[in-house]
Protein backbone atom coordinates (compact mmCIF):
# COMPACT_ATOMS: atom_id res chain seq x y z
CA UNK A 1 0.00 0.00 0.00
CA UNK A 2 2.87 2.36 0.72
CA UNK A 3 5.48 1.07 -1.68
CA UNK A 4 5.58 2.44 -5.19
CA UNK A 5 7.24 0.14 -7.70
CA UNK A 6 8.73 1.61 -10.85
CA UNK A 7 10.21 -1.54 -12.33
CA UNK A 8 13.75 -0.48 -11.60
CA UNK A 9 13.37 0.92 -8.11
CA UNK A 10 10.90 1.55 -5.34
CA UNK A 11 9.71 4.41 -3.19
CA UNK A 12 8.24 4.21 0.26
CA UNK A 13 7.20 7.42 2.00
CA UNK A 14 6.98 5.78 5.42
CA UNK A 15 10.59 4.59 5.17
CA UNK A 16 11.59 8.09 4.15
CA UNK A 17 9.83 9.67 7.12
CA UNK A 18 11.45 7.14 9.48
CA UNK A 19 14.90 7.96 8.10
CA UNK A 20 14.19 11.68 8.51
CA UNK A 21 13.01 11.09 12.07
CA UNK A 22 16.13 9.11 13.00
CA UNK A 23 18.34 11.78 11.42
CA UNK A 24 16.56 14.45 13.39
CA UNK A 25 16.95 12.53 16.65
CA UNK A 26 20.66 12.00 15.96
CA UNK A 27 21.05 15.69 15.19
CA UNK A 28 19.21 16.65 18.36
CA UNK A 29 21.37 14.31 20.40
CA UNK A 30 24.58 15.77 18.99
CA UNK A 31 23.25 19.26 19.59
CA UNK A 32 22.81 18.37 23.27
CA UNK A 33 26.62 18.02 23.66
CA UNK A 34 27.14 21.73 22.88
CA UNK A 35 27.50 24.52 25.39
CA UNK A 36 24.67 26.96 25.95
CA UNK A 37 26.21 30.41 26.21
CA UNK A 38 23.35 32.20 24.50
CA UNK A 39 21.89 35.07 26.53
CA UNK A 40 18.86 36.90 25.30
CA UNK A 41 18.79 40.68 25.23
CA UNK A 42 22.55 41.25 25.40
CA UNK A 43 25.06 42.47 22.81
CA UNK A 44 25.30 38.87 21.64
CA UNK A 45 22.06 39.02 19.70
CA UNK A 46 22.83 42.22 17.77
CA UNK A 47 24.20 42.14 14.24
CA UNK A 48 27.79 43.35 13.93
CA UNK A 49 28.26 45.52 10.83
CA UNK A 50 31.85 46.69 11.40
CA UNK A 51 30.67 49.33 13.79
CA UNK A 52 28.14 50.84 11.37
CA UNK A 53 24.66 51.53 12.54
CA UNK A 54 22.19 48.75 11.80
CA UNK A 55 19.54 49.87 9.24
CA UNK A 56 15.89 49.28 9.97
CA UNK A 57 14.54 45.86 8.87
CA UNK A 58 12.41 47.45 6.15
CA UNK A 59 15.53 48.79 4.45
CA UNK A 60 17.40 45.52 4.84
CA UNK A 61 14.72 43.41 3.15
CA UNK A 62 15.91 42.09 -0.19
CA UNK A 63 13.20 42.49 -2.81
CA UNK A 64 12.11 39.55 -4.95
CA UNK A 65 13.53 40.99 -8.16
CA UNK A 66 16.97 41.30 -6.55
CA UNK A 67 17.09 37.70 -5.42
CA UNK A 68 19.12 35.38 -7.66
CA UNK A 69 20.85 38.42 -9.10
CA UNK A 70 24.04 36.40 -9.63
CA UNK A 71 22.26 33.65 -11.50
CA UNK A 72 20.36 35.94 -13.83
CA UNK A 73 23.44 38.06 -14.52
CA UNK A 74 25.57 35.09 -15.42
CA UNK A 75 22.80 33.76 -17.68
CA UNK A 76 22.31 37.16 -19.31
CA UNK A 77 22.82 35.93 -22.88
CA UNK A 78 20.19 33.21 -22.42
CA UNK A 79 17.74 35.62 -20.84
CA UNK A 80 18.14 38.22 -23.58
CA UNK A 81 17.19 35.56 -26.13
CA UNK A 82 14.22 34.35 -24.10
CA UNK A 83 12.98 37.87 -23.42
CA UNK A 84 13.14 38.62 -27.12
CA UNK A 85 11.13 35.46 -27.77
CA UNK A 86 8.34 36.45 -25.38
CA UNK A 87 7.27 39.57 -27.23
CA UNK A 88 3.72 39.58 -25.93
CA UNK A 89 2.53 40.21 -29.48
CA UNK A 90 -0.53 38.15 -30.42
CA UNK A 91 0.70 37.71 -33.99
CA UNK A 92 3.93 36.17 -32.76
CA UNK A 93 1.99 33.58 -30.77
CA UNK A 94 0.35 32.43 -33.98
CA UNK A 95 3.67 32.68 -35.83
CA UNK A 96 5.15 30.17 -33.37
CA UNK A 97 2.16 27.90 -33.96
CA UNK A 98 2.66 28.09 -37.74
CA UNK A 99 6.41 27.50 -37.38
CA UNK A 100 6.01 24.40 -35.21
CA UNK A 101 3.31 23.14 -37.57
CA UNK A 102 5.59 23.65 -40.58
CA UNK A 103 8.59 21.96 -38.94
CA UNK A 104 6.58 18.94 -37.84
CA UNK A 105 4.94 18.65 -41.27
CA UNK A 106 8.41 18.71 -42.80
CA UNK A 107 9.67 16.00 -40.43
CA UNK A 108 6.70 13.68 -40.95
CA UNK A 109 6.53 14.53 -44.65
CA UNK A 110 10.12 13.45 -45.20
CA UNK A 111 9.64 10.34 -43.12
Amino acid sequence: MFTLESGSGFWNPILWILVLLITFLLFYGIRGFGKSTYKKGTEQTKAFLSGNKEPSPEEMHIKASNLYWGFTTSMKSLYSVLRKMHTGNTSDYILWFVLVLAVLLLILGVM
Binding site: G88, F97, V100, L105, L108
Partner: peptide, 21 residues
Amino acid sequence: IALVILLVSLGMKAGLAPMHM
Protein backbone atom coordinates in the same frame (compact mmCIF):
# COMPACT_ATOMS: atom_id res chain seq x y z
CA ILE B 1 -0.95 15.80 -41.93
CA ALA B 2 -3.99 15.37 -39.69
CA LEU B 3 -1.81 13.89 -36.96
CA VAL B 4 0.59 16.84 -37.06
CA ILE B 5 -2.27 19.35 -37.02
CA LEU B 6 -3.95 17.64 -34.08
CA LEU B 7 -0.69 17.31 -32.14
CA VAL B 8 0.26 20.95 -32.62
CA SER B 9 -3.15 22.53 -32.06
CA LEU B 10 -4.08 20.41 -29.04
CA GLY B 11 -0.53 20.89 -27.76
CA MET B 12 -1.02 24.64 -28.06
CA LYS B 13 -4.29 24.41 -26.11
CA ALA B 14 -2.46 22.37 -23.48
CA GLY B 15 0.33 24.95 -23.21
CA LEU B 16 3.24 23.17 -24.87
CA ALA B 17 6.29 25.34 -25.59
CA PRO B 18 7.04 27.22 -27.78
CA MET B 19 3.31 27.87 -28.15
CA HIS B 20 2.87 28.42 -24.42
CA MET B 21 2.92 32.21 -24.36
